[in-house]
């Protein structure tokens, strides 16, 4: 099921037109901020327009009269009252903006109700690891780059960095929060409509920083539970001989960096691939998860994402086909 992509204006589909648009938001964490941004922009523009009009009128009113004597100021009664009016208006505008800003800050500080779940998100060069732990550690599971949440419920995100500082930003759902090695920052988000929300690392973190995207996918609660139940399962045992051969190649060549739960492959350098096929993209949003992209990525990811911390595999095409056939069983 393809859900609408909420990427800030573009209606549906994987349209990259406004991938990081933040003027349309979809939840109580982001909406008040959007209102504030529009409000403050409009107030600021109004102030600039009023001041400009007053200054221009003052400058142009007496132009062209010729006589210098005419420029001598005529002091009437009650000149001070204009100063008071000006000060009062300014104070109202500034105080109003301040109160509004502080109210919004308080409003988005924490969710109104108890969060439905907490997700540990770790920024790596150049991908995102997401662990869903919950109360029961035996039900924990890890995935990457695509973070599913239940629609209409607040979700806490505990952020940290594995190597350097990254920053977590889902413009349509929540503002930026840094993911810093050695400490935990907390963000929260809530999506009020089912759909796919694009996010991006926004703290320069090295060569492939620009290719460090992620997707938040808001599912209806039942679909979310089904997804989580599926993710908790270990990988199914491959059946066909080609897939079995692929699994062997995988454990030898890839297992030091990647985990597939239920196999000896338990590496933690790269993303957990136990349910790779449940993701729509690979390489942190870089490529669609298709037969072609997956094959090319396995064989030579360095060409697609230069500097990526996965080496070119350069296995024989027969093994490549077996590897891909095996990966395709990781549903």
């Amino acid at each position: 099921m393809l859900q609408p992509l909420h990427n800030g204006g573009a209606p549906t589909g994987m349209s990259p037109d406004w991938p990081m648009g933040f003027l349309h938001t979809y939840g109580p964490r982001a909406d008040p901020v959007t209102g504030l941004a529009w409000g403050l922009s409009i107030i600021s523009i109004a102030v600039v327009v009023i001041v400009t009009v007053l200054v221009l009128t003052g400058v142009l009113r007496r132009a062209g009269r010729g006589e210098v004597a005419a420029l001598r100021p005529v002091r009437g009664e009650g000149g001070m009252q204009w100063i008071y009016i000006g000060l009062a208006l300014t104070l109202v505008a500034l105080l109003g903006s301040l109160v509004w800003t502080v109210t919004v800050l308080a409003e988005v500080d924490s969710p109104a109700s108890k969060p439905a779940l907490t997700i540990q998100v770790t920024g790596h060069q150049w991908w995102w690891e997401a662990t869903y732990s919950g109360d029961d550690p035996s039900r924990a599971f890890t995935t990457a780059n695509e973070i599913h949440i239940p629609v209409g419920q607040p979700v806490m995100v505990k952020l940290t960095g594995a190597d350097v500082i990254h920053s977590f930003w889902i413009p349509t759902l929540t503002g930026k929060t840094d993911a810093i090695p050695g400490r935990t920052n907390v963000a929260w988000l809530q999506a009020d409509q089912p759909g796919v929300y694009r996010g991006q690392c926004t703290e320069y973190c090295g060569q492939q920083h620009a290719h460090m995207a992620m997707y938040v996918i808001a599912d209806p609660p039942a679909a979310f539970q089904a997804w989580a139940a599926q993710q908790r399962q270990p990988a199914a045992q491959p059946a066909a001989p080609q897939q079995v051969m692929g699994e062997q190649v995988f454990v030898q060549q890839c297992g030091a960096c990647h985990t597939v739960r239920g196999t000896p492959a338990g590496g933690v350098v790269g993303p957990d691939l136990t349910h790779l096929m449940s993701r729509r993209t690979i390489g942190a949003g870089l490529l669609p998860n298709t037969v072609g992209a997956l094959s090319g990525w396995i064989e030579n990811p360095q060409a697609m994402k230069p500097g990526v911390l996965m080496p070119p595999t350069k296995v024989a095409p027969v093994q490549l086909a077996a590897l891909r056939a095996y990966l395709e069983t990781l549903r």
Partner: peptide, 16 residues
């Protein structure tokens, strides 16, 4: 493009 260099394609820099 994940396997082929394709002119004019942003994502066309594959070297397989």
């Amino acid at each position: 493009g994940s396997c082929h260099v394709i002119p004019d394609k942003a994502q066309g820099n594959g070297l397989v």
